[in-house]
Structure formats: C-alpha cells, structure tokens
C-alpha cells in the first residue's frame, strides 16, 4: 500500500484574523500556523492503513513556500515515512495548484492519494477532486468512512439528510472529513525521528491561472443584540419579536 497525502499549512483555527496592508491577504504577524486540521484525518488514515497492511510507504506532499517544511515535519512526526516539498508559490487558482500536485503524484505508483476535504484558510475545497480528474482516477470527497479490501475502496460521505455510500477500484483519490478517524498526536520520539526521515525538495513553477483575489475584508459586525429577559417569563416577549419584528416564525 503506497499512499500520498497532500498537505496544507493553515493558521490555527483559533487565530484572530487581521487583514494585511494591501487588503488581499491576512497579516501573519503573531499567527500560529498548523497542519490544516482536515489534512490530519488524511495523515491518520494513511498511517493507519499502512500499519494495518503491515507494509508500504506513506508520503506527504506539500506545495508552497519554505514555511511549509515545518508542517511536513509534523506529518513525519506523526508517523508518515517521507516528505516532498514542492517548492514554489501556490496560485489563487486551485486548478493550477492541482496541476502541480498531479504532475508530482502521476507515475508515483500510489494506491491512494488523500487530501483534507478543505483547507481552513481559503476554503477552496477543490484541489483533491481536481487532482483526481487530472489523473483520471476515481474520487470521493469529504469521506467519513474508508475501507480497503481486495483492491477496492468502500467509502461513506455525508450529504444533506443522509450518508452516501460508494465504492471504487484503487488507485483512487479521497478527501477526508471529520469523523473518518481520530488523528494521533506526534509522539516525542516521533518528533525526534522526523529529522532523520527522507525529505525531498523539488522546485516547481505554478502558473498564475485565471483567478485573482480582489480583496479580503472582515465581515460586518452583527449589530449588538439584546437580552430580552430572564427565564421562561421572557418567552412571550421573545415570540413577539420573532413573529412581528424579525418575521422568522
């Protein structure tokens, strides 16, 4: 079982967002960066599948500036075998990033290529499915269950009002959602071992593509609300507001 995990570096989800000068990106000063939380489900799935198979290789791949190397080492500390840094600036156009990743994964002999379902910075939600399309591989997005048997995968994914079930042959591309597994923490020994694992750096040039970020702004603050009252006695007043003022009931 040879598995690639494509990884992103994102601000910690608790980070306060401040817009940088220029108005198209966030100010990274003092922001803590972490592996994209959804990618951790992909990493865990890769490690667990290899452990179960008893053999194989897990590889983590990331496209971006040098800062992503620390994120790659976190994946190595969790238990991934090898890292590849596709060194270059990612595009605002997800399709161009998908091309760079697909070019690297193609011919790598992978049984599985895993992604997080989205990155918690740009919420692009497209790279995984695009890589699958470019590689002409089966794909399911936002999976919450994955079973591999006899060269086939069975997956589940949440859709509105239910859980969709699907199967496909390997090799395949999946993007991973919360619920798939419970990602492990890197152990202290893992952190020390990460330094000694193979780490390749391959420069890439990503085309600009057809997308430009025009602006990034903070959402308008909600108008300050009000306390209607205390306890069950306040329910009639609340109902009055919901029915007559807000007209939502």
């Amino acid at each position: 079982m040879k598995i690639a995990v494509c990884l992103r570096r994102t601000p910690d989800t608790t980070a306060k967002i401040v817009i940088a000068a220029g108005g198209t990106s966030i100010d990274e000063t003092g922001v803590k960066f972490v592996p994209n939380p959804y990618d951790e489900y992909a990493i865990e799935a890769a490690i667990a599948l290899k452990e179960k198979a008893g053999a194989g290789e897990t590889v983590v791949v990331a496209l971006g500036a040098d800062s992503v190397q620390e994120t790659l080492r976190t994946a190595l500390a969790m238990g991934i075998d090898r890292a590849v840094h596709l060194q270059g600036n990612a595009s605002a156009d997800g399709l161009e990033n998908a091309r760079a990743l697909a070019d690297h994964v193609r011919g790598g002999g992978y049984d599985l290529v895993l992604f997080g379902k989205l990155a918690v910075d740009d919420y692009g939600q497209q790279t995984g499915a695009m890589v699958a399309e470019l590689l002409e591989l089966p794909c399911a997005t936002a999976i919450t269950m994955l079973e591999i048997a006899d060269g086939r995968a069975t997956v589940e994914r949440e859709v509105e009002g239910g859980v969709e079930q699907a199967t496909c042959a390997l090799p395949a591309v999946f993007t991973c959602d919360k619920g798939l597994n419970n990602p492990r923490l890197p152990s202290l020994k893992g952190i020390m071992a990460a330094r000694k694992k193979p780490f390749d750096i391959a420069p890439v040039t990503v085309a600009a593509g057809a997308v430009t970020v025009a602006s990034l702004v903070l959402p308008p603050e909600r108008a300050a609300g009000r306390i209607v009252g205390e306890g069950a006695a306040a329910v009639p007043a609340l109902m009055q507001l919901l029915v007559s003022d807000a007209k939502v009931i």
Binding site: P11, A92, V120, D122, L216, P219
Partner: peptide, 17 residues
C-alpha cells in the same frame, strides 16, 4: 464573494474565462 477563514473574512475573487 465568498467567506474564507471559516467566515472570519470575506474574499472577493475575480475569475476569467
């Protein structure tokens, strides 16, 4: 226009073609 950073910011994006 699309929410990014889990709705903590709004991104305006121009798409060509």
């Amino acid at each position: 226009v699309r929410p990014v950073y889990a709705g903590k910011a709004l991104q305006t994006v121009d798409l060509r073609g």
